[in-house]
C-alpha cells in the first residue's frame, strides 16, 4: 500500500482498536477487514454469479453471510452484497472488485463507513435481547441481518453461536459501543 504519512484512528477514536471485557462478554473493536458493496447491474445477474464464483467470492442469499477462504460476503438487499476481505492485503478492496466484475456490477468502498464490534459471550441472546428485535436465539450461524440498536441502523452477523459481529455507523461508534457495554452489564 501507498507509503503516505497519515496515521489512522479507529472508529472509537484511538490509535489501536479497543477490546473491552464485561463479565463473560468480550467486545472487540475490529479494524482488520476491508469492506465494499457489490450491486449487480440490471441484466447481469448471471455474469455476477459466474464472476463471483471465478473469484471465489461467496454471494449468499437473503439474510445470509458466507465465508470463503479469503473473501466473505453478506446480503444487503436484492442483488446487493457487502464483501469482506482482509484489510492487510485488500485495503483498496473496491479497485480489486472492480477489476473482477468490470461492467457487471457497481462497487463502492465501504470500509470506513462502519464501526465493527465482535461480541463474544457464552449466552449472546441474553445480552442482545436487550438491544435488538432480531431473534438471535432462533438464528443459525451464518445469519446476517440489518436491525436497529438504540436508534442506529446496524448489521448483525452470526459468526458462530458465541460470536456476533455488529456493524454500525462509524460516526456513532461511541454510542453503539456504549449500548453494547450497557447491555452486557445489564444482562450478566
Amino acid at each position: 500500500m501507498a507509503d503516505h504519512r497519515l496515521k489512522p484512528l479507529s472508529p472509537l477514536g484511538h490509535a489501536n482498536p479497543l477490546t473491552e471485557t464485561v463479565g463473560p462478554v468480550t467486545i472487540a473493536e475490529i479494524t482488520d477487514t476491508a469492506l465494499a458493496s457489490l450491486a449487480t447491474r440490471i441484466g447481469h445477474e448471471d455474469d455476477v454469479a459466474r464472476l463471483a464464483a471465478a473469484a471465489a467470492i461467496p454471494l449468499p442469499g437473503p439474510g445470509g453471510h458466507a465465508q470463503g477462504a479469503i473473501w466473505a460476503a453478506f446480503w444487503l438487499g436484492p442483488q446487493h452484497w457487502m464483501i469482506e476481505a482482509p484489510f492487510a492485503t485488500h485495503e483498496d478492496i473496491a479497485a480489486v472488485l472492480r477489476t473482477s466484475f468490470a461492467a457487471a456490477a457497481s462497487v463502492t468502498e465501504q470500509t470506513d463507513a462502519w464501526a465493527r464490534f465482535d461480541v463474544t459471550a457464552p449466552d449472546l441472546p441474553a445480552m442482545f435481547e436487550r438491544l435488538t428485535a432480531f431473534d438471535l436465539r432462533g438464528a443459525a450461524s451464518g445469519a446476517a441481518t440489518r436491525t436497529v440498536i438504540d436508534h442506529l441502523g446496524c448489521y448483525l452477523i452470526v459468526r458462530n453461536p458465541q460470536t456476533l459481529t455488529v456493524l454500525g455507523p462509524r460516526s456513532s461508534a461511541k454510542s453503539l459501543h456504549h449500548a453494547l457495554v450497557t447491555a452486557a452489564r445489564s444482562a450478566f
Binding site: 458493496s37 450491486a39 449487480t40 447491474r41 440490471i42 441484466g43 446487493h80 457497481s106 463502492t108 468502498e109 465501504q110 470500509t111 470506513d112 463507513a113 462502519w114 455507523p169 462509524r170 460516526s171
Partner: peptide, 11 residues
C-alpha cells in the same frame, strides 16, 4: 433503470 445506490456519508 440500471441504477445502484449506496450511502457513503460515513466512509
Amino acid at each position: 433503470l440500471d441504477v445502484q445506490l449506496i450511502s457513503t456519508t460515513e466512509a
